[in-house]
Computed example of a mutant assay.
Amino acid sequence: MKRAFITGITGQDGSYLAELLLEKGYDVHGLVRRSSAMARTRIDHLNDNERLHLHYGDLTDGVSLVNLVRQIEPHEVYNLGAQSHVKISFEMPDHTASTNAIGTLRLLEAIRAAGLECRFYQASTSEMFGLTPPPQNEQSVFHPRSPYGASKLQAHWVTVNYREAYDLFAVSGILFNHESPRRGENFVTRKITKAVAAIEAGITDHVELGNLDAVRDWGFAPEYVEGMWRMLQADEPDDYVLATGVGYTVRDFCEAAFAHAGLNWAEHVKHNTAFERPSEVDALIGDASKAKAALGWEARTRTPELARLMVDSDREDLRRLLGS
């Protein structure tokens, strides 16, 4: 039985990846921060699975990582833990760097020091491209525009370094935006779809958003975690972009989400500069042709469909909450 170790298992991607690996027969170990003890709703439905094991630890605590890697002896490690909110990274740059950049280094060093023959996946991000114009692929120039993007770039390069210096099977998945009903409520897509449900129910009448002109390449998270798994099944380690290849503005996402509820988005969306970044990333659109050719991976869900399924999920959540 293969053993996998997932940091960030309580997050959107971690929960979907845990489901996928359990379905494939893995023994799944997850890292949870002590502060996450009461924030595990995304994996509550997996609690009865005897092959799921949760361990307290933190990417900012190298000792806990060393001990856990030696204890678990994983065949595959998926580093999904991070401070992943771009706007918050401007407010907490030190914490973001310690968790995302140095945390990755701590984990890689724990694996190297233990002498494990395991495979390592690093969750890189399209935010590393930043100012570089689309389409972006594995050969595009990196130019991050936030402490988050910069921290992820360091983590990306240290992963490459450990692959080259220590012959570690280490890959980076450069994933473009991917969403789902499990997306955090402070991310713009989920903020929009929750607002649609609330406005439709008469609970509120508007939502405040930042830059409506930002272009993003939004895909469906469950499809992207399958891509992560495929990267670690390849014969040789490499880095891959995962994306749909199609860009939409935040305004487009609003239009699709509100229209699904029969609402005119322009009547309910208000612009608030407080939600804009100090330095903006104008457009991220990925070219995933390498992943398609080498891994057989291709995004299936496009942004309009994604917006609709997220609205439906938030509608249902609200109905349950209201008891109707």
Results as ranks from 00 to 15, higher is better:
Gln136His: 03
Asn47Trp: 06
Ala299Met: 04
Ser124His: 09
Glu179Tyr: 05
Thr204Val: 15
Thr301Phe: 11
Arg182Ile: 11
Asn264Ile: 13
Ser151Pro: 03
His260Phe: 15
Asp312Gln: 15
Arg112Ser: 06
Gly8Arg: 13
Ala243Ser: 13
Tyr166Phe: 14
Glu316Thr: 00
Leu153Pro: 04
Tyr224Gly: 00
Val281Ala: 09
Gly210Glu: 09
His95Cys: 08
Asn161Ile: 09
Pro222Lys: 06
Lys292Ile: 01
Thr125Val: 09
Gly57Ala: 12
Glu236His: 13
Ala82Leu: 07
Arg3Ala: 13
Ala101Arg: 13
Ala266Met: 04
Ala201Cys: 10
Ile88Tyr: 10
Tyr78Trp: 06
Leu52Cys: 02
Ala261Tyr: 01
Tyr26Val: 12
Gln71His: 14
Glu305Asp: 15
Leu54Ser: 06
Gly25Ile: 07
Tyr121Met: 14
Ser324Cys: 13
Ala37Met: 11
Glu276Tyr: 14
Glu91Pro: 05
Ser126Gly: 15
Asp252Cys: 05
Phe275Trp: 01
Asp239Gln: 07
Asn186Lys: 11
Phe220Arg: 04
Phe275Asn: 01
Leu306Asn: 15
Asn264Leu: 14
Lys194Arg: 14
Ile43Val: 13
Gly62Arg: 12
Leu116Asp: 05
Leu46His: 02
Asp314Glu: 15
Val63Ile: 15
Leu105Val: 07
Glu23Thr: 02
Asn161Lys: 06
Thr99Pro: 10
Ser124Lys: 08
Gly262Ser: 14
Asp314Ser: 04
Ile9Ala: 06
Glu109Pro: 02
Thr41Leu: 08
Val246Gly: 02
Thr193Gly: 03
Met38Asn: 09
Val281Ile: 14
Glu127His: 00
Gln12Arg: 08
Glu208Asn: 04
Gly286Lys: 07
Ser126Cys: 14
Leu242Cys: 02
Trp297Tyr: 07
Ser15Phe: 04
Ile43Thr: 08
Arg315Met: 15
Ala293Phe: 15
Glu50Trp: 03
Tyr56Phe: 14
His55Lys: 08
Leu21His: 03
Glu226Tyr: 02
Glu76Pro: 01
Gly245Pro: 10
Pro135Asn: 07
Val66Leu: 12
Glu164Arg: 10
Leu284His: 00
Thr104Ile: 07
Phe253Glu: 01
Ile199Gly: 09
Val86Asn: 00
His85Thr: 09
Thr249Ala: 07
Phe253Asp: 04
Pro133Phe: 00
Gly286Thr: 13
Asp282Ile: 09
Ile174Lys: 05
Gly247Pro: 08
Phe90Leu: 07
Leu21Tyr: 01
Leu322Asn: 12
His75Leu: 08
Thr60Asn: 12
Glu226Arg: 04
His53Ser: 10
Gly11Tyr: 04
Ser15Glu: 10
Thr60Leu: 06
Ser126Ile: 03
Leu59Ser: 06
Cys254Glu: 00
Val281His: 01
Thr104Leu: 08
Asp58Tyr: 03
Leu107Ala: 09
Val28Pro: 03
Pro304Phe: 15
Arg319Tyr: 15
Asp238Ser: 14
Leu59Gln: 10
